[in-house]
Design a protein around this nucleic acid. Sequence first.
DNA 1: CACTGGCACTCGGGCTAAAGGAGTGCCAGA
DNA 2: TCTGGCACTCCTTTAGCCCGAGTGCCAGTG
Lengths: 339, 339
Amino acid sequence: MLDDRKLDVLRAIVQDFVSTNEPVGSKALVERHHLGVSPATVRNDMAALEEEGYIAQPHTSAGRVPTDKGYRLFVDRLSTVKPLSSAERRAIEQFLDGALDLDDVVSRTVRLLAQLTRHVAVVQYPILDRSSVRHLELIKLSDTRLMLVLITDTGRVEQRQVDLPGLIDERTVSDLRARLNQRIAGRPIHDVPNDLADLAEAEPPATRGNASAVVAVLLASLVERREERVVVGGASNLTRLALDFPDSVHPVLEALEEQVVLIRLLGEASRPTEVTVRIGDEHPYEGLRSTSMVSATYGSGSRALASLGVLGPMRMDYPGTMAAVGAVARYVGRILAES
Amino acid sequence: MLDDRKLDVLRAIVQDFVSTNEPVGSKALVERHHLGVSPATVRNDMAALEEEGYIAQPHTSAGRVPTDKGYRLFVDRLSTVKPLSSAERRAIEQFLDGALDLDDVVSRTVRLLAQLTRHVAVVQYPILDRSSVRHLELIKLSDTRLMLVLITDTGRVEQRQVDLPGLIDERTVSDLRARLNQRIAGRPIHDVPNDLADLAEAEPPATRGNASAVVAVLLASLVERREERVVVGGASNLTRLALDFPDSVHPVLEALEEQVVLIRLLGEASRPTEVTVRIGDEHPYEGLRSTSMVSATYGSGSRALASLGVLGPMRMDYPGTMAAVGAVARYVGRILAES
DNA sequence: CACTGGCACTCGGGCTAAAGGAGTGCCAGA
DNA sequence: TCTGGCACTCCTTTAGCCCGAGTGCCAGTG
């Protein structure tokens, strides 16, 4: 049905439209690409491509524009990965190497992605469930109050205060801290509830109440934060390309403020470092129907920690963006593995 | 020069223009407000107000629009504080009361402000310099590596890793922790460098190297984070009111991504809970010339911790916005004082 | 002296009409 | 199977026009 030349034509249409933002006609196509045939022939091919739903014309006497389906085919079969320029590689290293802690890694990554791709960047914090406990610290604030600080191997720090049912002294705190860490240090967060299930019962009656209060708050904090955090940056790139959003950028901005939507978008990505593209009407969320998202999962080693990506108009440079997102994801994974 | 009726006219112009977004003419004015005079008289007053620079007409044969100077006069002398509705009061309490930790307080505050005022919300984290040390925790990660966790009385948590020049054991860590906390717990961050100036020298030679490495990293972290953090939310409110920004919202969005600009904006606010308004050309930053910012400093007790506010078009409901921002600032201060 | 009604004037927005042009579909021929 | 030619479509731009809101000014009035 679609021979090689038709695919060439589609590829050329996508490329031209991405760079000019104007419907591309048969004449311009043969001039800018050496297809070796006449405009009339190209017109026939275009008619076939339109028949199949890969391109469309905004109105009768206009050139053709790729449809969502056309972009999809382009991404899946017609584009070759564009290697990053050495300047880009250097930018990634320089940007991320001086990061101080996890917050810093995340905020630098957002800025980096936004700058590199010139689209809106979205970066998710490492998912708590997929991390392990590095250390649980108990700090005595008063005779009936503790602060819990949970540190994960990915650098996340969660803190919470506990009001105790009874008095507690430094000695008991440090005993409890030791016993807790013995059980959970190095364990995946996922297993912590199990690991601590019978801790309180094993405590001597005198401290049992306090111990179970601590455990309760700890477990609760793991659940509460299940709604994972996402950071967004480079939103001004949307207005720079405002003409690409026919219904204005408003719904897109609204979507970007819905953590839930973003998490769902990122959450459906695939294996570590593999780059996923979601185009236009493939989005589950109404307001994003005129956008595309390029995302990748990052991880340390083979463990997927979370995802990051960029959101832009459907008319985007897919090969370049995919290369950038993939490279950043790999680099972030490496950095988190080191720390 | 400007008698009471002229001020009444200006007030009426601002109110009408804020609600309709259309240049207001003399006839419409006398119809909607009971000024007790004829349109012709109002026209004379308008001419005087224009002469003084409080209003302007977009073009001949159009109504009048307040100028920056006009809004300023309105805010300073012509508006009365609009008390919050009880629904709004309830919203504030409900929104903020369940906050778990500082991050949560800040992110809830941003969402609350954005929702309440329907403008872009900007909230600054408590400034490190104005907080005190609650506790410094040292956690041994390996024989040559520690993690520092600094907890302030406002709930900020800063963490950093230290590579030590020599080996260290649990016992030494806990000694060092005790000595450090003895010196700095409860002290203002501001004084910490002084408090620790001679700590390393007082250490026994065997542990001196490690101790000074820890102190060095700690002090460095206090300086690095001097660039304070700001969180932005509700950016989609900008595009909702896109027509209020003649040169498109792009420069405004760009400004919102410049932490430095925002910090400077918020930083120049005044005493705790006092509400500050900056209008149009009073902004130091070019891109914000068509916006107004309403901000307030929050604090616990008499201590100013940092500022929060909203950014919107110059054409905004100043009395209502000022009331909301002030109320939220007071409430946030109270919450942080409690914890 | 302050206010009012009347009136001529200005100027932007919106509507319609016409011209221009890019691009298509189709057909006949190589 | 490809090509050149040609009629056709329809969007976009430009120009011209009218309409009306709103003003400034002036002469008149309590």
